[in-house]
């Protein structure tokens, strides 16, 4: 999933203060699973904005709404009337959702209520960690199923570096050295010989260094 984190209320207040009538729009997929864009967070944030505005003279109105996914045109079209009625939309979606909203409602002010953090997994309730950077050409077959691009601080393909200590990355005792994990796993699956190979330099084009990416399935597309 894409993990998302709500921006600090201070930042949101500054961002939204000029728009009297505000629509707080939740996104009930990844953002909700990340506890940033669900109905409950919409309610919480809207209440917080209302409270912040209270007594400022310019209270305006703060509306609450949610859609299943802001990254799909059909869903966001369902709230077009609500969008039309407000001065600005505070979207609690990931960056993709905010942008699709902005494209769809070209004359409306669109504000991001969240920071999109990473592609990751839930470790436990309230704890997520990164697993993938969407590099466009997966190497997990060669690295025992653990990604050195997403999880090695130096994105080494021939790691670990000399900073790996007791299983931890040199940048922090709280970060696992993914190369240690890779080696542990390779040894468990009896493939330590894979370490002898020199991994060639990576083609970063599919990772986005070749310009904005687009995926087209000719067989599906109309």
């Amino acid at each position: 999933m894409i993990t998302v984190e709500q921006k600090k209320i201070e930042e949101i207040n500054t961002m939204t203060k000029d728009y009297s009538c505000l629509l707080v729009l939740g996104c009930e997929m990844c953002a909700a699973i990340s506890f940033a864009g669900g109905k409950r967070q919409v309610a919480e944030l809207a209440a917080a904005i209302r409270l912040s505005r209270k007594g400022s003279g310019e209270e305006g109105e703060v509306f609450e709404e949610s859609v299943a996914r802001q990254c799909e045109p059909e869903f966001i079209d369902l709230v077009k009337d609500k969008v039309a009625d407000c001065d600005a939309v505070l979207s609690l979606a990931c960056g993709a959702g905010v942008q699709l909203m902005a494209e769809r409602f070209s004359d409306k002010v669109l504000l991001p209520g969240c920071n999109t953090t990473f592609l990751g997994v839930t470790e436990e309730l309230g704890v997520w960690s990164e697993r993938c950077v969407g590099c466009g050409s997966c190497v997990l077959d060669k690295t025992a199923g653990l990604c050195p691009i997403a999880r090695c601080s130096k994105q080494l393909l021939n790691g670990p570096c000399g900073g790996s200590m007791k299983g931890k990355c040199e940048i922090s005792k709280d970060v696992d050295c993914v190369w240690q994990l890779i080696i542990d796993r390779l040894s468990r699956v009896n493939q330590l010989d894979k370490l002898e190979e020199i991994f060639p330099v990576k083609d970063w084009t599919p990772a986005g260094h070749g310009g904005p990416r687009k995926l087209v399935r000719e067989d599906l597309k109309s």
């Binding site: 601080s153 130096k154 994105q155 080494l156 393909l157 021939n158 790691g159 570096c161 900073g163 040199e170 940048i171 922090s172 020199i198 991994f199 060639p200 330099v201 990576k202 970063w204």
Partner: peptide, 20 residues
């Protein structure tokens, strides 16, 4: 790692690794 230095907010490059 750039995190240790005096510009910890820098973007690391790491286009290729030391062996490459």
């Amino acid at each position: 790692h750039q995190k240790f230095g005096n510009h910890p907010t820098a973007k690391g490059v790491y286009d290729i690794d030391s062996i490459q």
